[in-house]
């Protein structure tokens, strides 16, 4: 590959161009960066799905009222009207809306076919309730039962809690994968640095004897390792791009974006903005891991010299 451009400008007194070669290390770091990109995508994807679920299903209840037009226990009103009146008067309720028949039919059509409107089974009325905060469900259900027997209350919060537990687990797994990948990358760099140290042991001893500080020698290794790791991180991030775009395209229908993007801009727009911030961070993080690991490894090794 670009052997010349990978070499640092300047004076290679320790012969590190050979001792820390530009083949193996960038390749391994590129693989790590690729995996890190996948884990980050998982993290960001899970986070955005979780927030969508929270907004959509968030503070909502669905109330089913069977035989809505039958008289309620209080004379003079229908069951539906008295249920809605009770719901509207309950603290913590933001809005109450009875779904019109055609909207209900739309909801049922996938299950019942186009004949949903002409169904002979009596349909219950469905009331969508938005909440402002938490609401104690069982007492409300009891009071609804009293005025309109058979009324069912469905609390979306249960689903929300299950989904956010799922999203949280996905995020935790992604985070764990990230930590592991970073650790393995650091280990790879440490091993390469140690190999470089033993290959250049004599040169290091000579330079040390001529009065080079630990910082100088460690800096030489760190400069080389930083550069190689950054190149690896960049290659890994670039390789991850097409895979991430393909995944984003698969996920697009769930987030309301066009599934078949027409322009390149539209295609890149599929990636969550968080990922755009994070991808350029990969080479920088790899470089940082390279710098810190090489510095630490060399300094620890140098303690054996007087």
């Amino acid at each position: 590959m670009a052997a010349i451009s990978l070499r640092p400008a300047g004076f290679d007194d320790l012969g590190l161009r050979r001792a820390l070669s530009d083949r193996m290390l960038p390749l391994l770091v590129a693989a790590m960066a690729f995996l890190a990109a996948m884990a980050l995508a998982g993290w960001i994807g899970a986070a955005s799905l979780a927030s969508q679920w929270r907004d959509g299903a968030g503070a909502a209840l669905t109330v089913q009222v069977p035989r809505p037009h039958a008289p309620a226990s209080q004379p003079g009103t229908s069951r539906l009207v008295s249920v809605m009146a009770l719901l509207s008067g309950t603290p913590g309720v933001a809005s109450v809306r009875a779904l019109p028949e055609d909207e209900l039919a739309d909801l049922l059509r996938p299950w019942l076919g186009s004949g949903a409107e002409r169904l002979s089974v009596p349909l219950p009325a469905v009331v969508a309730v938005r909440l402002t905060g938490r609401l104690d469900i069982p007492p409300l259900a009891q009071r609804l039962q009293a005025i309109s027997p058979g009324t069912l209350l469905e609390d979306h919060g249960v689903w929300l809690r299950r989904l956010s537990a799922l999203a949280w687990s996905l995020q935790a797994c992604s985070g764990l994968a990230l930590v592991l990948v970073a650790t393995v990358a650091a280990a790879v760099i440490a091993v390469a640095t140690r190999a470089g140290l033993s290959a250049r042991r004599e040169a290091i001893e000579i330079v040390h004897g001529l009065g080079a500080t630990d910082g100088y020698i460690a800096g030489r290794f760190a400069r080389r390792a930083t550069m190689l790791a950054a190149v690896g991180g960049l290659v890994g991030a670039i390789l991850a791009m097409p895979v991430l775009l393909a995944l984003a395209q698969l996920a697009a229908p769930f987030s309301g974006a066009p599934a078949e993007p027409d322009t390149v801009a539209e295609m890149f727009g599929l990636l969550p903005p968080g990922l755009w911030l994070v991808l350029p961070g990969l080479p920088m993080t790899a470089a940082g891991i390279g710098f810190v690991t090489a510095h630490g490894t060399v300094r620890r090794w140098l303690r054996r010299l007087p």
């Binding site: 007194d13 012969g15 040169a203 000579i206 004897g209």
Partner: peptide, 10 residues
Amino acid sequence: RLLPHLSAMD
């Protein structure tokens, strides 16, 4: 104890 990969100059 010269560095083998450097010229006399370096």
